[in-house]
Structure formats: structure tokens, C-alpha cells
């Protein structure tokens, strides 16, 4: 079995990429729309961007990267029978760290709303709430996926389909991480 494990392969099952590319296409369209609107009103966007809390955004980037790392280790453990018993705990650990993102995002939204900032404030904040909100929905779905994956990892004798499903779910979580890095750069950082 081991040589097969070492072979290069497309992670997950082919079908998962329908979901991943479909989702990334949607976000790409949104990023394009955002940049287009930003080009039309550069001062408004720059001025509004200053009101965002970069510290919370940066913390959330670290949170997702850490969580992704745990899930990478879990995928690694899944494919190697001697390490497999770590996979479940690593996945649950990834979900636990990932859940911090939701809590921190909650603080961030609360801060905005307390300061009287809402989606209707201006175009920048509309895109801020739409992009981060749609991403947050993905985080919540991703957390549910990680919980499902932890039960798959709990199987004593996972089949090839189980392992492929696990990798596919892990790829979804990495996509959520990747999309956040783009959103963070685009909305919080780029001037």
C-alpha cells in the first residue's frame, strides 16, 4: 500500500473540484465587482477602509492558517495507518481553532454595528459585509464539514472512498482559508 500512498495524486475525489472551482469562480466575480466599484470611488473606499479593525483581521488570518495546518496534519495521518489514530483529534482540534474565527468575526461585526456602521452606510461597507458574510457562511459550513470528517476519521478501517472524502472535505477547508487571505488583503490591506 505504501508506494501508492507516496504517488502524486489529485487530492479528494474529482467531484469535489466542481464545488471548489464553482465557489472560487463566484468569489472571483465578487472580487472583480469590488475592484471595479473601488476604482470608481477611490477616496470613499480608502477613507472607509481606515475604519476596519486590522488587528482582528490579522488574528483571524492566523486562526485559519493554524486550523488549516491541523487539518493538513490530519489528512497526512489519515493516509498512514500507523498515524491514523491521530486524525480524529487533529480534525476536531482544527474545528475548535476554526470556531474562534466565528467568535472573533462576531466581535468585529459588533464593533461595526455599535459604531453605527451597517451594509447601508456606503458601498464599501456593503461589500465588506457581503464578502465577509458570504465567507463567514463558508466558515460555518466548513466547520460542519470538519465535524463530519472527524467521524469519518473515527472509522477504524477507512475505505478508499472514506479517505478521498476526507481529503475533499479538507480541501474545502483550505479553500475557505485561501479565500479569507484574499478577502483580508483586498478589503483590509490594499490601498
Amino acid at each position: 500500500m505504501l508506494p501508492a500512498v507516496m504517488e502524486r495524486h489529485v487530492p479528494g475525489e474529482p467531484g469535489i473540484w466542481v464545488l471548489l472551482f464553482g465557489d472560487m469562480l463566484v468569489f472571483t466575480v465578487l472580487f472583480t465587482v469590488f475592484l471595479h466599484e473601488r476604482g470608481a470611488k477611490p477616496e470613499l473606499f480608502a477613507h472607509s477602509q481606515a475604519a476596519l479593525n486590522r488587528a482582528l483581521g490579522a488574528t483571524n488570518t492566523l486562526v485559519l492558517l493554524t486550523s488549516s495546518l491541523l487539518v493538513v496534519l490530519a489528512s497526512h495521518a489519515m493516509r498512514r495507518p500507523p498515524l491514523r489514530h491521530f486524525a480524529r483529534r487533529l480534525t476536531l482540534g482544527g474545528a475548535l481553532v476554526g470556531a474562534c474565527f466565528v467568535v472573533i468575526k462576531g466581535f468585529e461585526y459588533h464593533e461595526k454595528i455599535a459604531a453605527g456602521i451597517a451594509p447601508s452606510t456606503n458601498e464599501f461597507f456593503m461589500y465588506y459585509f457581503v464578502l465577509t458574510g458570504l465567507h463567514l457562511a463558508h466558515v460555518i459550513i466548513g466547520l460542519a464539514v470538519l465535524v463530519v470528517l472527524s467521524t469519518v476519521a473515527g472509522n477504524s478501517g477507512p475505505t478508499r472512498t472514506h479517505i478521498a472524502f476526507f481529503e475533499g472535505g479538507a480541501c474545502f477547508w483550505h479553500m475557505v482559508d485561501f479565500l479569507w487571505i484574499v478577502i483580508f488583503s483586498l478589503i483590509f490591506l490594499v490601498r
Partner: peptide, 21 residues
Amino acid sequence: LWAAISFLPGAFNSLAKTGVI
């Protein structure tokens, strides 16, 4: 699953009078 996620933004349409939602 992709379709299900993609259906959802419409749910928020009453929050904005212009723009993507």
C-alpha cells in the same frame, strides 16, 4: 452543494437597494 450555497445570497436582498445583494 455548490448550488445550495449559491442560492442563499438572495435571502439577504431586503438589506440593500443597490449592489450585489
